[in-house]
Amino acid sequence: MKINIKKRKYLFFIIPCILQFVFSSLFVYNSVSVYNEFKDSFVNEEAVSNPLLPLQSAFTYWIGANVVDFFGNIFFYIVFLGAMLPCMPVVYRCFKDKKYAQNNASNYLKIFLASGLLAFIPLLFNFVSTLMFIPAMKPDSVYDIYFDVLTGDGLSNVFYTNPVIYEIIYMLIIFAMCGAIGCLCFATAQLCNYNVLAVMIPETLIYILHLFNRGFGIEKVISPIIYCRSLSGIMQNKKIALIEFGIIIALLLMFILINSIRSHITKNKVVGEKA
C-alpha cells in the first residue's frame, strides 16, 4: 500500500504521537497498579493511621509530577528530542521546492505548532487518563512534601487554589519550549541549505547537555529533560530555565536574521545576473 506523498509528512507527527500515547498508557498502568495496591491495603485495615500520608492523588501520580518511572523517562526523552521530527518533512519539502521555502513565516508557525503539540497532546492525554483512574484530591499545603510544590517555588499559590490551571500552565510552558526547539532545528537546517541532518544539531546539543548533567553528577540541574518533568521543577530551577529558553530564542532570532540576509543577497545576485 502506497502512502500519498502529501500525507506522508503527517506521519512525522502521528507516529511519535502514537508512540507517546503507548508510553503514557504504560506509565498510567504502572501508576494505577501502585495506587490500587495502596487502596486495597487501606480497605483491609481500619483507619488507625492517616491514609493520606503519603498522599495519593492524581496530581502526585501523573507524568508531570516528577515521578521516577522507566516509561516516564522514555516519554520525556521523546518530548524533547522528538521536537525536531515535525520539521523534517518541511525541511525536505523546502529543499525540493524553492517556492515553498519562501513561505518562511508560515513554515515557522507550522513547525512551532506541530512541535509544541507533539509535547502538549501526550501530556494532556496522560493527565486526563490519570484522572480517570486516580482521584484528584484538592492539594493542601500541609501535604506539600508529597506534591513537591513548596512556598517560594513560584506559582505555588496557583497550585493550592487552582491545581488544574497550574498543570495547564505547565503543559503550555512545555508546548512553548518544544515549539521553540522545533523552530531552532528548522532554522539550523535552513542555515545549512536545508540539510535534513542539520535538523538534529540542536537536539544533539540538548542531549549532550543532558548526558553532561547526569554523567558528571553536577549538583545544579541544567538539563531541560530533567527539570521540565514538573512545573515545580521548572520553578525551582527558574534561572537556568530562563537562561536556556533565552539562549534558544536568541539563537533562533540570530539564525533567522542570517538566513534572511543571505536570501536577500542571493536575490540581489540573481537580479543582477539577469540584468
Binding site: L131, P135, M137
Partner: peptide, 28 residues
C-alpha cells in the same frame, strides 16, 4: 473516580473558640 476517593473533612474555627480534638489525629 473522584466520588469514590478518600475524603478529608475540613472544619475551620475562629479565634477564642474552644475546639475539641475528638478522635482526630495527625499521623496515627
Amino acid at each position: 473516580v473522584n466520588s469514590e476517593g478518600i475524603k478529608q473533612e475540613e472544619k475551620n474555627y475562629k479565634l477564642n473558640e474552644e475546639v475539641k480534638f475528638e478522635n482526630n489525629f495527625f499521623n496515627s
